[in-house]
Nucleic acid binder design. Sequence first.
DNA 1: CGTAGCATGTAATGAGTTACATGATTCA
DNA 2: TGAATCATGTAACTCATTACATGCTACG
Lengths: 170, 170
Amino acid sequence: MSLRHAVLGLLAREPGSGYDLMKLFDDSLRTVWPATQSQLYGELSRLADAGLVRVGASGGRGRKEYSITDAGRTELRTWLLSGPSRGARSEMLLRLCFLGQVEPAEARAYLRHQAELAAKELAELEAVERLVPEHGRLAFELGLRHVRVRQEWAAWAEERLAESVASMAE
Amino acid sequence: MSLRHAVLGLLAREPGSGYDLMKLFDDSLRTVWPATQSQLYGELSRLADAGLVRVGASGGRGRKEYSITDAGRTELRTWLLSGPSRGARSEMLLRLCFLGQVEPAEARAYLRHQAELAAKELAELEAVERLVPEHGRLAFELGLRHVRVRQEWAAWAEERLAESVASMAE
DNA sequence: CGTAGCATGTAATGAGTTACATGATTCA
DNA sequence: TGAATCATGTAACTCATTACATGCTACG
């Protein structure tokens, strides 16, 4: 139930229409919490029904400008400070659990590929580091560190696998 | 669509009933890819319809023992070696994006709490490290490194916030 | 004989994705 | 006037969660 909170978070910064939010999701929240247009408009209706946002001025072209209410701010604050919810799925870890099911050589190739992907991602992040706004700094740093461990780990894992293949060949 | 592959992965190791799989999910896959009993039984039917698993001996108490087919193994292998699928949501990162919406003191307390949680988790993982079977070593190591960065990052973030609060008080 | 554990399923609800459908305004 | 952009919505489908419902069997 976190799309709701993402919308509240954005509207807490400044009011906007569904269309505006859509762009914000696409520009800056895409990698963290993807959402589609359908979902957004639906959620905005539900938030309005629940009294967490309100429709202000209705501009041209059917535009509805939403803004957050006090109840909405309270809800946002509660969620922000609440503990981490359980149930995080990781497709990466799941693949790893079963990587033993393919040929060692294939597994090595897979890990090498992962290391390369992570390295590329890391380079991209480092390139845009200076452009990150102050309010996004903490999130960016965590993302950066995660990518870095993924890269280091994949390199380590590939080497480890290479050793065990070599020792079996003796 | 990865529950499907988790089931295939388990059945590739050895055949079993829905009930058996349920226990495996609860024991070892819980933290990586949680699934409920309902989901499992539904997925097994669909997998059987798709010809990726087959029902072998039907034991007592209505037990149906499923085993993987060649088509199933092919599907599993394809998935294992396929690139990382996009669309990973991170509630943690989402919260971070909006952490600026609460009082700095509250944000600091939140981060300190996160650091403590991660430290505890890390201690638990290190305590069971020796018990990890060889085939789960890679996944375990990645999990370990992730928790470690989370802990280090939370400590770093809290300190950073403390500094900026102090400099504003001058 | 009762209960713990084995074993399978259905129904309702909520969340997410894709595709479709429609209309207004700006500007070249 | 035609295309790009602004703007909102609906429908169909899949996936996940919770709760409910049922029945068999081993064993103490």
